[in-house]
Design a protein around this nucleic acid. Structure first.
Lengths: 144, 144
DNA sequence: AATTGACGGTTACCTTTGCAACTAATTTTG
DNA sequence: CAAAATTAGTTGCAAAGGTAACCGTCAATT
């Protein structure tokens, strides 16, 4: 009779921590702006890289293309990003933040970094170990 | 001009690892049985504790009561669990696995543990650090 | 013991998501 | 260069999730 304690089971723990932390973080930007997580990821990716296509955004932020498509439309309706057709490839849409989008991004980033910093602080000596372990996990799962 | 690299941002990384690992694990039991994650969690909780109410299952597996309710119904339709009314409190339904449910559980547990073991092995020296860091995170987020 | 409030669990409704099929543009192959 | 295969992105549909309202039971207050 094998025994498995769910609360100590690694996949369960990782899933749980992941949703708890990212939901908690969501409340930070959700407080000022009402953004979903996919929308935040698109915003963050465009803020980080400037113009790029939806496919590339999905690759960088690990989101399904339909999720990206919908998040892009939502941000567009908010006037936070604009599209233009690529000249090299007319299938592709080159996306970029508008000034309003960029302003929101620049407003969110400091609180995002502050949240991360606080989280790491609270882990004390385990902080660096966690970061190293995440590197290792990502390497193993080829997510780097 | 602040900078945030999404791929290094802790909430994002945790969310991503969590879903990648738990989905990968899902493929293991999904291979033999077609189980959703909530269904697996209910199964695991009942396998671990024997009889208990839906509320307690939700508390232990961190699931919303509607998620539990639906997973319980699905498992019931599969004849993997049965309900009976509690004698002390007729609001509560005491749930327990049937022999078939228990058999499935006992069949899944070894592969679950093997998967976890393999994952930890692949982390090498970082394995223990990860577990410690998760303990710390759960303590901080009061999820223990 | 009658009212009030809390609790366990389910369901109706709405939102979010993923899959598959689709359009339009591009590349590849014969 | 025409047909076939591939790619970027969107959309219809069905499954899955959360919120809030609800039902029946229990506990507390009166």
């Amino acid at each position: 009779m094998t025994k498995l304690a769910l609360e100590h089971f690694l996949p369960y723990r990782l899933a749980r921590i992941g949703t708890v932390v990212s939901q908690e973080f969501r409340e930070i930007y959700g407080h000022d702006y009402d953004l979903t997580i996919p929308e935040w990821r698109v915003l963050a990716t465009l803020g980080q890289f400037g113009e790029m296509g939806a496919k590339a955004i999905g690759r960088h932020s690990f989101m399904h293309k339909t999720k990206v498509s919908r998040a892009v439309r939502a941000l567009e309706e908010r006037r936070w990003l604009k599209r233009r057709e690529s000249l090299e490839d007319r299938r592709e849409e080159v996306l970029a933040l508008t000034p309003q989008g960029l302003a929101a991004y620049e407003n969110i980033v400091p609180s995002a970094l502050a949240y991360e910093e606080k989280l790491l602080q609270s882990l004390g000596v385990h902080a660096q170990a966690l970061l190293d372990a995440l590197d290792a996990l990502e390497r193993v799962k080829k997510m780097g």
